[in-house]
Amino acid sequence: MSHNAVISFKGCNYLRQRLILSTLSGKPISIKEIRSQDDDPGLREFEVNLIRLLDKMTNGTRIEVSETGTSLYYQPGLLYGGSLDHECCKLKSIGYYLEVVMALGPFCKKALQITLRGVTNNQSDPSVDSFISSAIPVLKKFLVVDDGLGMKITKRGMAPEGGGEVIFKCPVRRQLKPIQLMDQGKVKRIRGVVYAVRVSPAISNRMVEAAKGVFLQFIPDVYIYTDHHRGSSSGKSPGFGITLVAESTTGVFWSAEAMSNPAGSKAPPSVPEEIGKQAAFLLLEEIYRGGCVDSTFQSFAALFMAMSPKDVSKCLLGPLSPYTIQFLRHLRDFFGHTFKLESHKKTEEEEELNTGANKVVITCMGIGYLNLSRRVI
């Protein structure tokens, strides 16, 4: 039966994309030569941890890993969901796992409520704050009713020791709704959250002042909250950071963030003012790229567009990130599904001011993915 033909890959890249699409399509995958040339070959601890998490979310999944860890066979079971608890690997932030959890959440059999523990903020993965500020709004657009969707940070945990805790709830839907997101609007306000964990609260104010100093030259409506955690809710490592989000007149959210170098790393100690400014400039760059979805979460929009009913979905995106381009290729591998990509003409205003990056309009016909919570043979 072609339905169960194994899709083969090589190497460790894009493991999360492959696992997500394998789980949704029901097609088993085999990945060989995982870091086979490295001094330390095979799957890393955080990847094994991710596969365990998928095992918890599904029922009847078959996983085989070779002795050296350089080859993996993954045959997905049914997405079950329900109430779950997972201790994430400290080498990656909770954001690394959230990408998979959020992509699969709406397609579970039972509404998902998952508590993830570990590092909430590090320098290499999107933080939990950026998921709250710009990934949740993307998912909301596809869910017909968004009651029951939410994410909450109950404890902060900075790298390297973590100790953070996040609760994510996602309702289940029989099917998503197709979208037309073509108007990115203008920036109307900027919000942000500054967190300082196990360090002086004065650091928060210094970051706020530095970031606001950049934005107040452009826009009056800037408000940055401080989120100071103490005692047991502040995780195990000291650190500080800032997540900023710009909201447009049409309800589009762009986010950017910066955080201090982790304790115990060889990097020099971070200066709060520099972290505040760095995040502010990154957000300005994100606004310049534009599009109706933040560049970090373009692949979410592509996934949910492909999974929506058999109707046309259209979305304006900023320049596609390499990660998104690979995701579109993977969608073709698993679902035989392709997108139409067109470059978007700049508005007269953008032409005049010579601003705005080259945007892309992605269009696709949904595959009409139904969450029947059972496999149709």
Rank of each mutant, 00 (worst) to 15 (best):
V166A: 02
K169A: 13
K169E: 14
V172S: 04
V172N: 00
V172F: 05
R174V: 10
R174E: 11
R174H: 13
L176D: 03
Q180W: 08
L181C: 09
M182K: 12
M182V: 12
M182P: 03
G185Y: 09
G185A: 10
V187K: 00
V187T: 13
R191I: 05
V193K: 03
Y195F: 15
R198Q: 15
V199A: 09
A202W: 08
N205T: 12
R206E: 15
R206V: 11
R206K: 13
V208S: 01
E209F: 04
K212W: 00
K212N: 09
G213I: 00
Q217L: 12
I219Q: 09
I219W: 10
P220H: 10
P220G: 11
V222G: 07
Y223P: 03
I224H: 04
D227T: 07
D227S: 15
D227A: 09
H229G: 01
G231N: 11
S233C: 07
S233T: 15
G235K: 07
K236P: 05
S237Y: 05
T243R: 03
A246V: 07
S248Q: 09
V252M: 11
W254G: 05
A256Y: 07
A256M: 05
M259P: 05
N261C: 14
A263R: 07
G264W: 06
S265R: 10
K266Y: 13
P268R: 11
P268T: 10
V271E: 12
E273R: 11
E274W: 08
G276Q: 02
G276I: 02
Q278R: 11
Q278Y: 05
A279N: 08
E285H: 08
E286R: 11
E286C: 08
I287P: 05
I287A: 00
G291Q: 11
C292M: 04
D294M: 10
S295P: 10
S295T: 08
A301W: 02
A301N: 01
A302S: 15
